[in-house]
Design a binder for these strands. Structure first.
Length: 118
DNA sequence: GCCCTGACCGCCA
DNA sequence: ATGGCGGCCAGGG
């Protein structure tokens, strides 16, 4: 499990409640290769329902040293959120296809989506 | 506290 | 399918 030291005002850190970023990173970390999850799903699985945007934020600020499978997170409906012409978009599509996920028109196949329940 | 800015989401014309 | 829009929720200035 990817972990990073993060301190808060009180010095003690326990739950997702106090450390949403860590919770979100953990979830992303657990998306199996070849499968994809949406920002909303990731947030919900991290115990932060309704905070899809924070899932995006978490990924944006994630330390590179965590080596998170960020490419396995897409927007609602399986859409790659980056502008089609952007570097990130191409990179994400490349990484996904590399692990067997079909990507057409910036959209992954529905069967690749996972609810992340368990 | 107010305002703006997003790696978001879902509804609707 | 597609752009628009309001709703949502953190961060940062």
């Amino acid at each position: 499990m990817a972990r990073i030291r993060v301190s808060n005002r009180r010095g003690l850190i326990r739950s997702a409640e106090e450390q949403p970023l860590q919770a979100l990173w953990d979830v992303v970390c657990n998306i199996p290769a070849g499968r994809v999850a949406t920002y909303g799903t990731v947030a919900r699985a991290a115990g932060l329902p309704g905070r899809a945007r924070q899932a995006g934020f978490a990924l944006r600020v994630a330390p590179a040293t965590l080596h998170l499978p960020w490419h396995r997170v897409v927007g609602a409906g399986g859409r790659i959120v980056f502008p089609p012409s952007s570097r990130s978009h191409r990179e994400q599509a490349r990484l996904l296809r590399a692990e067997g996920v079909k990507v057409t028109n910036g959209r992954v196949t529905r069967s690749a989506l996972t609810d992340l329940e368990l």
